[in-house]
Design a protein around this nucleic acid. Sequence first.
DNA 1: ATGCTATTTATTGTATACAGTAATTCCGTT
DNA 2: AACGGAATTACTGTATACAATAAATAGCAT
Lengths: 238, 238
Amino acid sequence: MSDAQAALKRRPSDKEGDERHEAIYRSVSDAIVEQRLKPGARLREDALAEVFGISRTGIRKILQRLALEQLVTLTPRRGASVTRPTADEAKDVFDARQLIECGLMPDVARRMNAAAAAELRDMAREERQALRSGQQSVAIRLSADFHVRLAQLSGNATLAEFVERLCSRSSLILAVYGHRGHLGCESHDHDDLIGYLETGNGERAKAFMSRHLKAIEASLSMVEEEENVPDLQQIFGA
Amino acid sequence: MSDAQAALKRRPSDKEGDERHEAIYRSVSDAIVEQRLKPGARLREDALAEVFGISRTGIRKILQRLALEQLVTLTPRRGASVTRPTADEAKDVFDARQLIECGLMPDVARRMNAAAAAELRDMAREERQALRSGQQSVAIRLSADFHVRLAQLSGNATLAEFVERLCSRSSLILAVYGHRGHLGCESHDHDDLIGYLETGNGERAKAFMSRHLKAIEASLSMVEEEENVPDLQQIFGA
DNA sequence: ATGCTATTTATTGTATACAGTAATTCCGTT
DNA sequence: AACGGAATTACTGTATACAATAAATAGCAT
């Protein structure tokens, strides 16, 4: 038996199990944020357990975490499904982003430096690239990543975590209320923003972020469109 | 066998189980916020399972939730313990409260009405009462409840939830860095705040909230004091 | 006596078995 | 053919058994 086969078969040690759990969590979370798992899609414990090769116990832990982050909805006796945000929730999320993300801009501008700016530019470029090559769902995740990274640069880990949650939920909202073929974020907005931050112009960045978020929110149609749910196998790859 | 005994013995239906879980969660959460469980206290799964009469499975679910709310810290293979916030975290939490709670004041003022004001006054009175009768730990929880209720009145459920988390963590911070016998919140601050909100003066309320939070933060000493951890039985009552 | 190693113990991590309930299907009646 | 109800099925909720590991302890050598 080859090492690879042995690695697959043997019971993983607990430490490895933790990392595996984290990887599975990210896998599912990314699938939701990238809209390969669409709002309303059911997440059956058995199916997920089989796909990822762990028992339902571990899957439940992950689903509960996702539920607390409001990416999945846990209805008693019915199990988990990808959250379908209501219009009210959408408004709350974007209002919250206005308050928090805009409020952080002065701090971010104060702490901005060349290295951070370069990193952000890389992320913005990658996002444009994904968009050009037609990978819109990937672009949506990259856009969320950009906003999260920005918040992290403020130095406030707690608020950055809040922004992270808001951005994931925003992806869900875009999936339900966004127009197909329209990302929400304009391609060059992020670059412009980096410019303001780099020159330490916090107030300017704040105002720009406000417009940026308003633009995304305005691009939503608030009319849901029905989707059919694909198979777990093809989403995560056999 | 009496009904009460029967109710204790028989396996609860799943729906009742959910409510029971929620009750246990609140029980533990309150114990932490009221500082009957002090930062650093270990929360062994077996012990909790026995105290509350459910299996470790349910306890783990609750501990994971508390961990995501950062009230308890889950270290692999070591189990759960009440989080001992660092000074950095304390700063983050209070900065976040400044941004969010102050930012919500205009909205709260706009939506304030007689019924809400009366409810808030009741809460403020109850808090003063607890303080007068020497129940400082209860007063700390009531103070947190007040701030949370205020945030809920803004109408933004998402931000209200963030405030809820920040307030729980603040109680932990007060437990570690607060002076004994000093609550942080001045007794009449909350009443003054209600006054500004009732007259629709959002900006005034915002400024007052800012001073209020700064006062609490300033009352912290940033020097931890060691505590001995009491027994689970006496905390939750046999 | 002290430090190091082996053994025991305490406690968490994971899988699985079983129970309970909601959804579905199938069948008989009208 | 449509409706209502009973049997079946599919899935989640919970407890428990077992595995793995870290902490505590005891024993040994220096």
